[in-house]
Design a protein around this nucleic acid. Structure first.
Lengths: 207, 207
DNA sequence: GGCTCGGCTAAGCGCCCGCTCACCGTCGGC
DNA sequence: GCCGACGGTGAGCGGGCGCTTAGCCGAGCC
């Protein structure tokens, strides 16, 4: 189980920061619908129906369908960044911190797959300003992982010829979990997290 | 440049097997539109417009919009599988064959990014029968890569505790290139292919 | 020259989309 | 007991969707 923490599954039901209750139910319904069919293929009638409300109710809590996606994407990226920061800033060697970061990041992408799918794959559906805000968060995500790898190179733990390229590959590997992970498949999020932490340590020459 | 071949960029303009000319123009227009905005967000009017034709012209050559996606997906998967097979069945050590497979597979995903995006990310938009056909092709893709890794383990070249999981990760890494690769970015498809071949050899313990 | 026929277009059908608006039930405050 | 505020609904608007149909045009054949 490597360095499992409560960073992923331990916290209470997510979206608790969204109030009032009806707004949260609509948002959770939208996450499910967007993850299943994609943003453009999801209708406002479908979202409202999943939340047990009439189509018009959506517009009491959100100005447009796009605002729903924006809120989901913002909260999701905040959470993902928080997970990475927690791992990056703990004590330990660079290898321990990288394994922890990859493990918890992967557990989140697998365990909260519906959210992660929307967060990672529906960026292009946002308008220019909203997209710019999210892109800034992604740059911070990149910086956290790159920081750990740079630390490992500086301390001699890692052997990495192309730090930026390797950072990109590590993040790409983790993010793509949201595309293929199957809740009914043979692997648990914990198992995938442990496997990926090992693979990434090998990629940086610390395996 | 490692073991660069003409498997990717060297072949003539793709889609040459699609005839007549008008049908090919529509299909190329559809690939561009689907890659930019996604299948569901693309209208038949947009596709026809890009091909310089009226909306009705599409239905002379294709029964539905979904048939267009099916044809694109089928041809694209055939091409991707062909690239992998060529690398997997050449002569050489398992490490050479794996590096060649990853390098050429990545070069295709980066160099023909628009096609790869549609092929890899619009699978869910297909109906059940079409999707089943494509899923069967993907299993063959998986089998090719797994075969090389198994060869390397058998010969003692590789050290891989979880062959199926590592195969999944290698393919995931390559496929996700189609999501993030930017034609105007700092890296060429060849550079990414070489970087990824190196990273994958490290993942299997042959770096 | 007349005929056929495949490729293509203009027009439009029926449907469903995102979103709005007039209205309504409930509930705390006085 | 009345009132305003809030959260909700039913009906529907304007428009764009995938797709169809009637008919036009030019090339090939006799």
């Amino acid at each position: 189980m490597s360095t499992a923490q409560e960073t992923t599954g331990g916290d209470v039901e997510p979206w608790e920061e969204v109030t009032p209750d009806a707004a949260r139910r609509l948002l959770v319904a939208a996450v499910e619908a967007f993850a299943e069919r994609g943003y453009h293929a999801t209708t406002t009638r479908d979202i409202a129906g999943r939340a047990g409300m009439s189509p018009a109710a959506l517009y009491i809590h959100y100005k447009t369908k796009e605002e729903l996606l924006h809120r989901i994407s913002r909260i999701g990226h905040d959470k993902a960044l928080d997970i990475l920061r927690t791992a990056a800033r703990r004590e330990g060697t660079a290898a321990e911190r990288l394994a922890d970061a990859v493990g918890s990041f992967v557990r989140w992408h697998a365990g909260r797959r519906t959210t992660a799918r929307v967060v990672q794959y529906e960026l292009d559906a946002l308008g220019p300003e909203a997209r710019a805000e999210i892109v800034a968060l992604r740059r911070q995500v990149d910086a956290e992982v790159r920081g750990i790898i740079e630390d490992g190179v500086a301390s001699g733990e890692f052997d990495v010829p192309d730090v930026q390229g390797t950072t990109l590959a590590v993040l790409s590997l983790c993010i793509d979990v949201a595309r293929w992970f199957n809740v009914n498949g043979p692997r648990t999020p914990e198992e995938v997290g442990a496997l990926y932490a090992d693979l990434v340590l090998r990629m940086v020459g610390a395996g």
